[in-house]
Every structure is written in C-alpha cells, then in structure tokens.
Amino acid sequence: NQASVVANTLIPINTALTLVMMRSEVVTPVGIPAEDIPRLVSMTVNRAVPLGTTLMPDMVKGYA
C-alpha cells in the first residue's frame, strides 16, 4: 500500500506548507503520494485542512 500525505496539524487556508505540517501514512482513500512531500513544501492550501486529513491534489494550489 502506498503512503499518502496527511496533515500533522490543523493547516489554515492559504498557509504555505512546511515539512512539520505533513506526515506520511497509509490511508483510504489514497491522497497525494508521500514521495511528493518535498515538492509540496512552500505550496499553499486552498482550504483549511484539519489534523489527520489526507491531502488531496485539489487542496494544494499548483499541485494538480
């Protein structure tokens, strides 16, 4: 099973992502692959992402 990116904290809308905000976890449904974490750093989220939420491609500006 592939690990996905999961919010390690509440990420407010329009926040630039940092490494400490994200962790990898095997979850269903599958979200952004964990190997993309380095690429996500400094990208911003377009909605509030609660703790434990899987990051989906449409949640990160410029990812999809």
Rank of each mutant, 00 (worst) to 15 (best):
V5Q: 01
V20T: 13
V20A: 10
D36G: 05
A64V: 11
S24I: 06
N46T: 10
N8T: 09
L55Y: 00
V27P: 00
V49Q: 02
P50S: 11
D36A: 10
P29G: 03
P12L: 11
G52V: 02
I11V: 07
A16I: 11
M59F: 07
I13M: 08
T54A: 06
Y63I: 05
A16L: 07
T18D: 10
P29I: 06
N8M: 09
V5Y: 01
M21F: 04
G62P: 06
L55C: 01
Q2T: 12
N1I: 15
L19T: 10
D36N: 12
V5D: 02
M22F: 05
R23A: 07
L55A: 01
S4P: 01
I11W: 01
M43I: 04
V30I: 14
A64D: 15
I37L: 15
Y63P: 04
T9Q: 11
L51Q: 13
L40D: 00
V60K: 01
P38W: 09
G31P: 02
V26A: 10
V45H: 01
L10I: 15
D36T: 05
L19C: 14
S42N: 14
T18E: 11
T53G: 13
A64G: 11
V30R: 03
T9I: 15
T18W: 03
Y63W: 12
N8R: 09
Q2I: 15
P50M: 07
A3H: 14
A64S: 12
G62I: 03
P38A: 13
A34F: 06
V30C: 05
I11E: 01
P33C: 06
L17S: 00
T18L: 08
Q2V: 13
L40Q: 00
D36P: 00
R39C: 14
L40Y: 02
E35T: 11
A64F: 04
V41P: 02
P57G: 07
N1G: 12
I11F: 02
L55T: 02
T28D: 15
T53H: 15
P29Y: 04
A3C: 10
M21E: 03
T9F: 15
P57E: 09
V5R: 00
A16P: 12
L17M: 05
Q2S: 12
